[in-house]
C-alpha cells in the first residue's frame, strides 16, 4: 500500500514492513545465487587453476573443454542417462499410477512402499545397489550359489553397461514420486467425463488413450521438468554407486565439474562446465517457471 504524505508514521512503517521482511531472503538470493553465478561465469573466462585468478583468457576454457575426451564422455553418458531415466521413470510412473487407480486393496500401503525411496539419500541408495549389483557378493554370486553357475551379471564393473546401473538405481529412487504425481493427476480428472465416455461406448483402453492420458498433460510437463533437472544435477548417486567408473564409464557433467575443479585444479574449465550445466537447466526451467507464474496471476 503506497500512501500519500499525510499518512502517520506508524501507518507508513506498516506499509514498509512487508518489503523489509522480504529483503533478507532476497538479499541472500541475490548475493549467494545470482552474484555467485556471475562470479562463476566470470571465472570460466579466466586462467583460474587451484585458486580463483582474474587473468582474462576469453573463450579458451570453453574451447579446451570441448576438446577434452573426458567431457565428451560425460556428455554422452548424460545423454544416455537422461533419456533412459526420464523415459523409464515417466512410463513406469504413469503405468503404476494407472494400475493403482483401479480401486486397489491396500493402495495406501503400496503407495507408501513405492514412495519411500524418495526419502533416502542417494548415498544410501548408491551403497545398497553398489553391493547388490557387485558380481563378487551380489546378484551374480547369489544366483551362481543357487546352482546356475554360468550366470553372469557384471554390468556395474563393465565399461559398456555401467551407466545402465546408474539408470536402474536412479529410476528405483524417483519413479515412485513420479507415480504419485500421475496418481494425483488421475484423481483430479472429473469422473463425470469418464462416465460420459463410457456411455459413449469407449473401452478402457480407449478411455485412457483418448480421454485420460491427454488430460494428464500438466503432470507430464511437471514430471519432465523435475526429472530433467534432477538428471542434470545427478552427482551423489554416481559417487556412491560407481565413483564415475569403471574408468570414466559413468562420469557425468556434475562429477566432471567436481573433479576438474577440486582434484585436478582446473578451476577455469570446471567453471566453464558448470556454466554449461546452468544454461541447460535454465533453458528448461525458465520457460516453465515463466508459464507457471504467469498463469497464477
Amino acid at each position: 500500500m503506497a500512501l500519500s504524505t499525510n499518512a502517520d508514521f506508524k501507518t507508513r512503517l506498516q506499509s514498509w514492513l512487508p518489503k523489509l521482511v522480504l529483503s533478507p531472503s532476497l538479499a541472500l538470493v541475490l548475493v549467494f545465487v545470482y552474484g555467485f553465478i556471475l562470479f562463476s561465469v566470470y571465472l570460466s573466462f579466466t586462467d583460474s587453476r587451484l585458486l580463483p585468478s582474474f587473468g582474462w583468457v576469453g573463450w579458451e576454457n570453453y574451447s579446451k573443454l570441448w576438446r577434452l575426451s573426458h567431457w565428451e564422455i560425460s556428455l554422452k553418458n548424460m545423454g544416455v542417462f537422461a533419456a533412459l531415466y526420464i523415459g523409464i521413470c515417466t512410463m513406469l510412473g504413469l503405468g503404476l499410477a494407472i494400475f493403482l487407480d483401479q480401486k486397489i486393496r491396500g493402495e495406501g500401503m503400496i503407495r507408501t512402499i513405492y514412495l519411500y525411496p524418495m526419502a533416502l539419500s542417494f548415498i544410501v541408495t548408491g551403497t545398497a545397489w553398489k553391493w547388490f549389483l557387485d558380481p563378487g557378493i551380489g546378484l551374480e554370486n547369489v544366483i551362481q550359489s543357487w546352482g546356475w553357475t554360468s550366470f553372469e551379471f557384471d554390468w556395474i564393473k563393465n565399461r559398456d553397461y555401467a551407466i545402465y546401473t546408474v539408470v536402474l538405481a536412479a529410476v528405483w529412487q524417483t519413479s515412485g514420486f513420479v507415480m504419485a504425481m500421475f496418481l494425483a493427476g488421475l484423481r483430479g480428472i472429473d469422473n463425470e467425463i469418464l462416465k460420459a465416455a463410457q456411455m459413449d461406448g469407449a473401452s478402457n483402453w480407449n478411455l485412457y488413450r483418448r480421454i485420460i492420458i491427454p488430460q494428464l498433460r500438466p503432470a507430464f510437463l511437471s514430471a519432465f521438468v523435475i526429472l530433467s533437472h534432477l538428471a542434470i544435477k545427478t552427482f551423489d548417486l554416481v559417487i556412491a554407486l560407481t565413483g564415475g567408473g569403471p574408468g570414466r564409464a559413468t562420469e557425468l557433467p556434475a562429477t566432471f565439474m567436481y573433479s576438474y575443479t577440486f582434484s585436478r585444479n582446473q578451476m577455469g574449465i570446471g567453471a566453464a562446465s558448470a556454466t554449461i550445466m546452468l544454461m541447460t537447466i535454465a533453458a528448461i526451467m525458465i520457460p516453465y517457471l515463466y508459464a507457471e507464474l504467469r498463469e497464477k496471476k
Partner: peptide, 10 residues
C-alpha cells in the same frame, strides 16, 4: 476528517 492515507483501523 480527511481519511486519505489513514490506516483502516484508525
Amino acid at each position: 476528517n480527511v481519511m486519505n492515507g489513514v490506516h483502516p483501523s484508525k
